Structure formats: structure tokens, C-alpha cells
Computed example of a mutant assay.
Amino acid sequence: MSQSTSQSTSQSTSRTINTSAQPEHPALAGYGWDAGWQAEFLRATADPAAAGPDPLPGRVVRVDRGQCDLVTPAGTLRADTEYVVPRDPMRVVCTGDWAVVDATGTPPYVRTLLPRRTAFVRSTSSKRSEGQVLAANVDHALIAVSLDTELDLGRIERFVSLAWSSGAQPLLALTKADLVPDEATVAHLVADAESSAPGVRVLPVSARTGAGLDPLATVLAGGTTALLGQSGAGKSSLANALLGYRTQRVQAIRDQDGKGRHTTTTRNLLPLAVERGGGVLIDTPGLRGVGLWDAEEGLGQAFSEIEELAADCRFQDCAHEAEPGCAVLAAVESGALPERRLHSYRKLLRENTRLAARTDARLRAQQRKLFKQRQELGRHLGERKRGPRRKA
């Protein structure tokens, strides 16, 4: 064995044997670095020839046109992302990613991404069958919903479905609670939001008065949180309050239609106030369109009461439309399940199925077959209703 081969083997071994030890790079602990990421980094850099002479771990805090800013043990670096081939839009470098960085390059560059634990993904606004990763490695998806306008329960259900699908824990922040005239009304709005988001904690907050911020910060402490919501939902004000310093500019909503202006234009990962428990926040631009992406599992959790009822339907493949013995329709008729919830569930399920069919040829064929079967059934029922044709 040559000396160089021996050294390579020794280095490779040293990078892979201590995966259960305390994580190195304590400077990254505040950004979510732990023993699990340490082990992934050691696996990714086990081959020195591929990893480079002195690879560094880094967390992406901002992405901008082929470059990204990362926090590393050597400080904050700006690195190229061209080495990570972006042929797969789901593997494009994203805010929140952990990466292997070659800091010796000129300029430094990202060699590879560590496997994501979670990813908040929506469909693109185009008709192409692609997803867009908004934030990676997120523990909580904090959905901001403003109380200065009527609650859009359907939009809440859409955001919650995507949050569950990402693998993160959704959390609803009802912002601008100080604009609601009395506590009884706030309690009523919280109950409405809770009914549209089973299993999701709902907290009314006010960035102006500070009400509700302490319990919210307690939930988020120490983890990575993606802040999501429409423009005008008060995301920037909430971000400033949680961060403990003014980092995002705040704009008023438009008077004529109550819609917000885009204050945040990039996705930035920022450290939360230490006195509130620490952690990091990924502030995202306001989202006017939130298309589902591979959200079947998330829909099941967002509409968990419908899924539970469906288990008692007579037919296993019940579509909850007009089938006999449908437990879901029975619950709607008795008032146990709001009809609006069922309509929303059907709508989002159809949307998710259509999107999935764009990339799945077998699913497209199944949909065409089902459509033809329904057409044939319709013709058959029509003929039975009209009766047999008389011979001339």
C-alpha cells in the first residue's frame, strides 16, 4: 500500500468512526447543528478525494442567483452553488440547507448538500410538474394569519396541509390580535381556526403590544422555524418581535383592497433572540399562491377527522359523494362534520391528484379509466330513467 493510499484510508476512517460523539463546531450549535448533522457530515466527507482537503460544514442563510451565504465554523462565507447541479429543482440549494463547503476555492463553493430532514415544498406557479422548496430542515412551520380581515379557513387548511406534508410541526399565529375589539371575539376566532386545523396549536399574538409572544417563543425555542403567510399578514412585524431586533422593514397594507405589499423579498435564516430561548427563523416572502405538492399525507393529517370517519364507510374506496353507507356523509347530515370541511377536503384532494398525475403516467391512465367508467355509468343510468327505446 502506498503512503498516500494509507493516509487517505486513515483520514477516511477518522471521519467515520466517531458518529456518536459530541458534535464538533460548537459555534454552529445555535443554528441547529447537532450529533445527527455531525454524523451526516462525516459520511459526506468520508472520501477525502471527493470532499477536498479541508471541508467545512455550513448552513445556508440566504440564496441569491447562483450564490449563497452560509454560516460556518470559519465565519460567514459567500459561496458559489454551481457545483451542485440544479437539474432536479428539488435539490437546488435552499435556505436552511446544511452543506459541505470547500472554503479553499476561489471563490468558495458548495460541494454537496447533506440529506434534508424536512422540506416545505409548494408547486410552481407554472403548469410544469415541478416543486419549489421554500425552506429546508424546518422543525416548525409558523403560519401567520391576520385578524384584521375575515379568516380564510380554506387558506388555513391549505397551509396546514403543506406544513404537515413537509414533516414539520405546523403552528398558527393569529396576528394583529390588538385590532380585535374584545377577548370574546378573539376566543371565537381561535376556535374557528382550531376547527380548521386539528392537532395544530393556535396562538393569538400582537407584535405591537407583545401579547402572546412569550408562549409562542417558548414553543419555537431552540429549533428552526419557517415563517409563512400571505403578504399583509404581519409576518415582518412578527419576525422583528421574535428576533428581538428590527431586521425586516414593515409596510402598511393597501387601503383599497386590504392586501399587503411584499416587504420581505428573499428567504433569510436569522437567529432568534437568546432571551426568548434561541433557535433560528427562516422569514419567507408573502405567498399569494400556495399550490399543493405531494400533499396526500399532509391532507390526511389536516383533515384527520374525515379520515377517521372514512374508516367506518361501507366501501373501502368510498369517495364520500353519494355512496350508501358513507360515514362521512352521515356525519355531515347529522351536523357532526361541517359541510364546508368536506368541500374543502374534496377540492384539495382533487388538486393534489391532478398535480400528481402530471408526473405519473400510470396515475393519468387510471384517471382516464375512471372518467370513462363514470361516463358509461351515467349513460346507463340515463337509459334506465328514460326506459327502453320503442321500435318504429
Rank of each mutant, 00 (worst) to 15 (best):
S334W: 00
A29G: 06
D139E: 11
E305L: 12
A361P: 11
P108F: 03
S196L: 02
L299W: 04
V328E: 03
V280I: 14
T95R: 01
V205F: 04
P324G: 08
R354W: 09
G222C: 11
G260L: 00
R158D: 13
K391R: 15
P108S: 04
L370I: 09
R384V: 10
G199N: 10
G222E: 11
W164F: 15
Y31A: 15
S195L: 08
C326Y: 05
I143D: 00
L292T: 11
K372F: 12
L56G: 05
L272C: 14
A295W: 02
R128A: 15
P204K: 06
T13I: 12
P388V: 15
R379D: 14
Y345P: 10
V332R: 04
C94R: 06
A99E: 02
V85D: 11
A144I: 03
S4F: 03
F371T: 15
G66E: 05
T118C: 04
T218S: 15
L114E: 02
A361W: 00
L142P: 03
Y109M: 06
M90P: 01
V101N: 08
S236H: 07
K372W: 07
D54R: 08
A27C: 10
L56P: 05
L174P: 01
D97P: 06
D102A: 09
A51E: 00
L329M: 09
P181I: 10
R65D: 10
R249S: 11
Q67S: 11
R43H: 13
N268P: 00
V84D: 01
P89L: 12
T175Y: 07
A46Q: 08
P170N: 14
T264N: 07
Y83E: 07
R261K: 13
R364D: 08
L269Y: 05
D317M: 07
T16P: 02
P48F: 07
A136S: 15
T118L: 03
E339D: 15
A207E: 01
R208V: 10
W164C: 06
K127P: 00
P271Q: 09
Q11N: 09
R254G: 04
T209N: 02
P108Y: 02
S196G: 13
L309K: 12
R390Q: 14
P338K: 08
R128E: 15
V85P: 00
A252E: 15
A141F: 04
G229R: 04
V63S: 02
R276M: 13
R128K: 15
T72P: 08
R128P: 05
V205W: 03
H140A: 07
L171F: 10
R350G: 01
V145R: 04
A79V: 14
L349E: 03
A310P: 12
A221I: 05
T95H: 05
A79I: 06
T95K: 03
G234W: 01
L309Y: 09
R354T: 12
D102W: 04
K235A: 12
A44C: 06
S20K: 10
R249E: 13
Q169H: 14
T175C: 08
A361Q: 14
E150W: 05
L153D: 03
K176G: 02
L243C: 14
Q301M: 12
T185W: 01
G210V: 07
G291C: 02
S344W: 06
A331V: 13
R117H: 12
P388L: 13
L228Q: 11
L355K: 10
A119S: 13
G210L: 09
G278K: 07
R91S: 09
E383T: 14
A135H: 12
Q22M: 12
T218F: 08
R111C: 06
A35Y: 00
V133P: 05
L151H: 01
